[in-house]
């Protein structure tokens, strides 16, 4: 499902170049869940950006569903994301100018799916947000906003879901609720889940855990099954 070969990322820095990622290899199978943990500045978010095709690597390649991102144009990568990739962000990233319903409809429309309104509405009902459908993000609580974001991420039934610190901005109780939601949807829809987190609790839910340290990735042995 996700295959990474010798992935490197170098950025220019004050006196020379800074290697953020140093030749990373990784393979995650369809339906698996994986967590990437590590200290701040270790390169977790950079890796996530490369995996999703938001950024281009300096060396190496990422294959999503067997397709090489390196050989694609920006628009082709966008089209692939619209079809197969969902996203959940730490700061929710809902469009403030759209209602909850419209935010969920957006990826469906971008992927050219049918009946986007109905699908989005059903999904929000499932997440117990039916009564908040026509509210703007600023009127929703943090937990509600993240649930809308999760609905948006799962709306187009993507094969892969990337999550960047999905509970980072939430209190412990809401965070736990969101974690549960994320993994139950992941199970129900058979989605491949890759998440970046600081929280051990969240990482523990995953089948596989990778640690990023100084631009290098290593898989940690599992303490207990997910």
């Amino acid at each position: 499902m996700i295959k990474v070969e010798k992935l490197s990322k170098t950025v220019p820095s004050g006196d020379g170049e800074l290697r953020i990622l140093k030749g990373i290899d990784l393979e995650i199978k369809a339906g698996q869940s994986a967590a990437i943990v590590g200290p701040s500045g270790s390169g977790k978010s950079t890796l996530l950006g490369l995996l999703a095709g938001l950024d281009s690597p300096s060396e190496g390649d990422v294959l999503l569903q067997g397709q090489s991102l390196a050989s694609m144009s920006e628009d082709q990568r966008a089209a692939l994301r619209a079809r197969s990739v969902g996203f959940v962000f730490q700061s929710f990233q809902l469009l403030p100018s759209l209602t909850a319903l419209e935010n969920v409809m957006l990826p469906l429309e971008l992927a050219g799916m049918e009946a986007p309104r109905q699908r989005a509405s059903t999904l929000l009902e499932e997440l117990e947000l039916g009564h908040r459908q026509h509210h703007y993000p600023r009127l929703l609580s943090g937990g509600e906003q993240q649930r809308v974001a999760i609905a948006r991420a799962f709306a187009s039934e993507p094969a892969i879901l990337f999550a960047d610190e999905p509970t980072g901005n939430l209190d412990a109780k809401t965070g736990a609720h969101i974690t549960e939601l994320l993994f139950s949807l992941n199970r129900d829809k058979g989605t491949t889940l890759v998440l970046v987190t600081h929280e051990q609790g969240l990482a523990d839910h995953c089948e596989r855990v990778f640690e990023m340290y100084d631009g290098e990735l290593s898989e940690l042995p599992r303490q207990r099954p997910c």
Partner: peptide, 15 residues
């Protein structure tokens, strides 16, 4: 900010 999000969600340049 808005455009970056739309792009992440799969919006193309033309859009």
């Amino acid at each position: 900010q808005e455009n970056a999000l739309l792009r992440t969600l799969g919006a193309r340049n033309r859009f």
